[in-house]
Each structure stands twice: as structure tokens, then as C-alpha cells.
Simulated scan of single mutants.
Amino acid sequence: MKSITPFITLNGNSEAAMRYYAEIIPNAEITQMDKFDDDGTKTFQGVLNIDGIDVNFLDMKHDKKAPDLNWSFSLMVECSSESEFDELFEALSKDGTIVMGPEPVCEYERATWVTDKFGVTWQLVI
């Protein structure tokens, strides 16, 4: 096996999601943004690199709908400081849904699950 890469499929807002994450997440940058040829608005292959880990994005074409995302799959971020945790929590929960926390969980000082405005669920821990 060469690699395993998280791959998120959305319905026309992959570029907006990637730009938002690149803005709010430390060490995140868009490294690829290829569009479908038909209209140039939907993302065919988008790559957001977060601290050395690629997360791929795709928009479904007009005649197909992506399955609804849910919190059973999430991206976990181990924050390096309380301020980083607080900033990410505030940004990701804005216009989103707090699934759990923040609260102490096992060895973590604080943990939370947040589904953001794009429907992607994040676990933040410190």
C-alpha cells in the first residue's frame, strides 16, 4: 500500500471549504485546485495540505448529489496550545453544530466534536 488519504466529497462548495480551512487552520494550504472542464465552478481534484497531511476534495457534478456527511467520520486535530484550540473551536463552530464539549475526556484536558458549516466534523483535542 502506498498511502491512505482522507477524501471529502461535497456538493459544489469544495473550493469555499478549502479556502476557509486554509484561512483558519495553522499550517494549512491549498496545493491543488483542478476544476471540471464543463463549467469551471466545481472542483474535480482539490488538495488541502494540513501540516504535511493531504486532504482531498471533490464536488459532485450537477446530475448527482454527494451523500450527506455525518459525525461518524471526522478529522481529528491535536492542538498544540489552548489558544490554538480556542481559535479553531470558535471558527469551526461558527454557523456549525457542536456535537460534544468542549470538556475533559480521558487523557485530554479538553475535547470537542464540531460539525462545521460545510458539514465536515472535526475533533479538537488538547
Score class of each variant (00 low, 15 high):
62 H>S: 14
6 P>E: 14
77 V>N: 12
17 A>N: 05
98 I>N: 12
120 V>W: 03
64 K>T: 00
44 F>E: 13
15 E>T: 05
114 V>G: 09
72 S>C: 07
41 T>Q: 15
86 D>T: 11
70 N>Q: 01
13 N>W: 02
21 Y>P: 00
17 A>V: 01
69 L>H: 00
51 D>W: 04
18 M>L: 11
60 M>C: 01
107 E>Q: 06
17 A>C: 04
51 D>I: 08
63 D>T: 10
78 E>Q: 15
11 N>R: 02
24 I>L: 00
89 F>K: 06
73 F>T: 07
101 G>M: 08
6 P>Q: 13
6 P>T: 13
115 T>M: 05
89 F>P: 04
19 R>W: 01
52 G>P: 08
67 P>Y: 00
29 E>P: 11
88 L>E: 08
115 T>E: 10
23 E>N: 07
58 L>F: 09
86 D>H: 09
43 T>A: 09
92 L>C: 03
9 T>Q: 06
68 D>P: 00
40 G>C: 15
12 G>T: 09
32 Q>R: 07
88 L>I: 05
48 L>Y: 11
51 D>S: 15
119 G>T: 02
95 D>Y: 00
99 V>L: 07
39 D>L: 13
19 R>C: 11
46 G>C: 10
25 I>F: 11
59 D>F: 03
87 E>S: 10
51 D>Y: 09
106 C>M: 13
64 K>G: 00
11 N>Q: 02
111 A>I: 06
103 E>T: 10
89 F>V: 05
55 V>Y: 13
87 E>V: 03
97 T>C: 01
94 K>E: 03
20 Y>I: 02
79 C>N: 12
53 I>W: 13
8 I>K: 08
10 L>H: 03
113 W>H: 10
80 S>T: 07
36 F>P: 10
104 P>G: 06
84 E>V: 08
7 F>G: 08
76 M>Y: 10
76 M>R: 07
44 F>N: 13
119 G>Q: 00
32 Q>G: 08
7 F>M: 07
95 D>Q: 06
88 L>H: 08
115 T>H: 04
40 G>M: 15
113 W>I: 12
39 D>P: 13
74 S>P: 06
90 E>D: 11
99 V>F: 07
47 V>Y: 05
57 F>S: 08
106 C>Q: 10
65 K>H: 04
41 T>W: 14
99 V>K: 07
18 M>N: 09
112 T>L: 02
64 K>E: 00
96 G>I: 02
108 Y>W: 13
14 S>R: 03
101 G>Q: 08
32 Q>K: 12
82 E>D: 14
10 L>K: 01
96 G>L: 04
40 G>L: 14
111 A>Y: 11
58 L>K: 01
90 E>W: 05
56 N>K: 11
57 F>G: 06
95 D>V: 01
96 G>F: 01
13 N>H: 06
40 G>V: 15
7 F>Y: 15
102 P>D: 09
98 I>D: 09
92 L>R: 00
113 W>M: 13
13 N>E: 01
105 V>Y: 15
41 T>D: 15
76 M>I: 07
69 L>E: 03
51 D>Q: 14
48 L>A: 09
60 M>S: 00
22 A>I: 11
87 E>R: 10
11 N>Y: 02
26 P>M: 03
74 S>Y: 01
110 R>W: 09
